[in-house]
Design a protein around this nucleic acid. Sequence first.
DNA 1: TATGAATGAGGATTCATTCAT
DNA 2: TATGAATGAATCCTCATTCAT
Lengths: 216, 216, 216, 216
Amino acid sequence: MSSDDGSRDSRKAQQRQRILDAARGVFFRDGFMQANLDEVASIAGVAKGTLYRYFENKADLYVAILAENGQVFEERMREAGRGSGNARDRMRSISRFYFAHWTQHSEYFQIFWALENQNVIGDLPTELVGDVTQLWEKCLGILESVIRDGVDAGEFAKCDPWEVANILWTVANGLIQTELVAPRRELRGKPLEQVFEDMVELFLRGLAPGTEVRDE
Amino acid sequence: MSSDDGSRDSRKAQQRQRILDAARGVFFRDGFMQANLDEVASIAGVAKGTLYRYFENKADLYVAILAENGQVFEERMREAGRGSGNARDRMRSISRFYFAHWTQHSEYFQIFWALENQNVIGDLPTELVGDVTQLWEKCLGILESVIRDGVDAGEFAKCDPWEVANILWTVANGLIQTELVAPRRELRGKPLEQVFEDMVELFLRGLAPGTEVRDE
Amino acid sequence: MSSDDGSRDSRKAQQRQRILDAARGVFFRDGFMQANLDEVASIAGVAKGTLYRYFENKADLYVAILAENGQVFEERMREAGRGSGNARDRMRSISRFYFAHWTQHSEYFQIFWALENQNVIGDLPTELVGDVTQLWEKCLGILESVIRDGVDAGEFAKCDPWEVANILWTVANGLIQTELVAPRRELRGKPLEQVFEDMVELFLRGLAPGTEVRDE
Amino acid sequence: MSSDDGSRDSRKAQQRQRILDAARGVFFRDGFMQANLDEVASIAGVAKGTLYRYFENKADLYVAILAENGQVFEERMREAGRGSGNARDRMRSISRFYFAHWTQHSEYFQIFWALENQNVIGDLPTELVGDVTQLWEKCLGILESVIRDGVDAGEFAKCDPWEVANILWTVANGLIQTELVAPRRELRGKPLEQVFEDMVELFLRGLAPGTEVRDE
DNA sequence: TATGAATGAGGATTCATTCAT
DNA sequence: TATGAATGAATCCTCATTCAT
């Protein structure tokens, strides 16, 4: 009996996954507004109506895609930041994870940003937008605590850890967004990963103690 | 007769401008996809058909909005970077301009970003997208030359000026995008302008010579 | 074994009743077209597919609801008309029953009327509509015979009993329909029951012998 | 110029009328829910989208049909009641008008009743439903004032004119609804008009003074 | 040159019914 | 016998674009 239930549940989960996989591709390629649920269904190999057995509506499906990635993302980012080394190395570890994750899952990143562009999507259920915002906050919290550790340990100059976390966060986002999502500008042969790393080092250097005063 | 032509031309220009003004507001508020040309026409005080006498189609109108700002932007940015002081101050000058411009014209910034998300728009005429990209390149060129000056003058550590320009550029975009366009996350009382300035200082400190040494 | 069959049959009957109960509520609240079989199944506590083991389709279920009430209705109306008093009192007795029944079972009344509006339903199986029509006829027959008795006894003026029965019948329906189903118009404080009774009295007065004379 | 405008306006009015004509037929035949706007457009000989230039949505179109009849109806009913004769004759005049009108415009009557059946239509704009209700009230007011005149003139027995107006109104509706819209029951050869007239006479007789006390 | 009426392709969503388990 | 997942036809509404006046 329990095995029956199990197999049915797993079948449901599989079906759901197939829909998510199809939807991810279409949403990524076409954006929320342009995405066509007919095509999603067709790619997933199910009937149109079946989508609605698994997701309330288009927006719900869309957010589900974000959510599936978001949970993994947060968890892995927390791990990356947990490292036992010094703060600077933990920052590098986070950075590496961050870069690798978004490079591998650029679809998600794309979608994430489209979500930020509130006006692109007409009327996304606010509670769901709230979920994404919360995830964002949590990740910022992780960065913040590493920076605070660094400041406390004298590795970093005195600063407002929360503000610096925000800066780094947006900085990283900006780079990936600009270069990965809209890869129209030449990087003149330098691999993006290198640029990203250099950027992190640049900022770590800026965070080093003893550099606070520069211009007399 | 020539004066007649002149007044007719100016009338055409005025009409065109009224349409642009109306469209800018609507595009900003609703995004490209959601924007409704009916409303644009109504706000501009012309008939819907009239739009098509001034612009080929929706996308054309959209890009015209970008273009009108882009020219002003490039010119002013060039001025901001021309300053006679040291490279660091010229960077600060550019930064201030950059921040002020986007804060005052956040509509344009918003639209620019939407443009980056190519998939949101669908089939924007590539030649027009090219125009925007060129503008982007020119602005990067300005940044690059200032940085190169700083490196040559020994103000900045040795680096690839073009790469660093790219980093700063995306960094700044990221901050504005994240905080201005999606003002959902708390800044905890710190004014955005302050955060932006701090970011620039952090960046400049990272660029200072003598900090190249990584932790052993 | 026969007891097994019996309990199985009773179980089936119970199941059927639970479905009818659920459906009645939903049909009453939402009307035939809007009624949702998903909800019916959910309220009845069975799976949607199960509905189809007890009823051919939506319309069949709908008509079954009418039928279940119709039998009780006819029987009770016959009783109410059987009274031993004079025709006038038997008419009042029927009226009281009629009013009480529809007030208590306004769901059925509502549904009956919707059935009248054939076009609302579309393609109800004609044979089943026939059943309802027959019931209607039988009830009219009861009224008719009481009126005929009254005429024969000299209580009522000479008239066509069948026609008068029809008038009273539609008159009563109209009042209930208008005031019960569409309770939007104010009754200005007068209870519906009072209005109904007044109407019957007005009608009876019109039937009184010696009033046939029209104004000269 | 004014002639231009005039012809354009008249063209718009014609178009609107063609749509109304088409819609009336479809709504009458299929009811609100079943009615298909594609078919309406096709019958009217216009494109689907054109409907929406003249009517906000399905419900709006539906109510427009009621409204177009309602205004004429109220006006004519008021005329019919204005007659200079005695109250009884004015009542007969109203009755004749009422019967003739609904017989000629049974589509409207049908639709009116469907509207009363609130639950048939999901979500009709309340303000528009309000309009219909108001019309209803006005017509009742006309009846009421005639009855009051009759009571004041001693033609009718003392009664609550408003209540009696309500009774007569629903009575008449009931007859038409039952016999005209759902003509399933045989009238045994008697023309409906005769039955209607007899019904009115029956009630007028009931209203005659001196008949108040019947049962001792 | 300006108008605005007309167009019609396109897309999200619902839900009665079927059928494999 | 009961289930409930899957189906897919059906339908309202939007809106960029065209074109006769």
